[in-house]
Amino acid sequence: MFLQKTLAIINAELELFNLKIQYPSPFLIPKNSFPPSPLYLTDETYLIEIMELVSGMFLSKRVVTHTGVVSPLTEIGRAFEYLFNIKLGDIHKKHESVIKRKPAKVTEFLDMLRKVIQEESKNKGYL
């Protein structure tokens, strides 16, 4: 009985394999199988500003993969690309561009974000 069921499973797998060979298109996974993100950046937002966020997340080592390993820079960058429907291009080159900026500009976008959060907190009476 066990051998018959095992053979039936093997035969079913072989049939599926043959169908994949004869008709490959239904079995192909679309390259972009996820729906696009509903989020977009305004025209006032520059990619280098988003790279400040990506670089900060990467350097903080607070983003990990599903296995618990610190996430590579490119994975964090690709996640932001998907999140905001953007293309960062060469993420390592853009990361270096952030790091090489003049001292006053290195965290310009992050500083602006900190400022608007502090202003909102002050406006609501928390500061």
Rank of each mutant, 00 (worst) to 15 (best):
F80Q: 00
P35I: 06
K115A: 12
P35A: 06
K61I: 02
D43T: 14
I86E: 00
M51S: 04
I21K: 13
S71K: 11
T65D: 13
L39N: 15
G68S: 03
I117A: 14
F58P: 09
Y40G: 01
K20E: 14
A79H: 01
R62Q: 15
K105Y: 14
V54R: 07
F109H: 12
L59F: 03
F84H: 03
I76E: 02
N18S: 12
D90C: 10
V64R: 15
L16E: 15
Y23H: 08
G68I: 06
R114M: 10
I76C: 02
S33F: 15
F84Y: 13
S71Y: 03
I76L: 01
Y46E: 14
V98N: 03
S33W: 12
P36K: 14
H66N: 13
V116A: 00
N85M: 02
T65A: 05
E15Y: 05
K105E: 15
I50G: 05
R62W: 01
K31W: 05
V70D: 06
M112C: 02
D111Y: 03
F27E: 03
E15K: 14
Y82V: 01
H95K: 07
S55D: 07
I48A: 08
I99E: 06
E13L: 15
G77S: 00
V106C: 03
I29T: 13
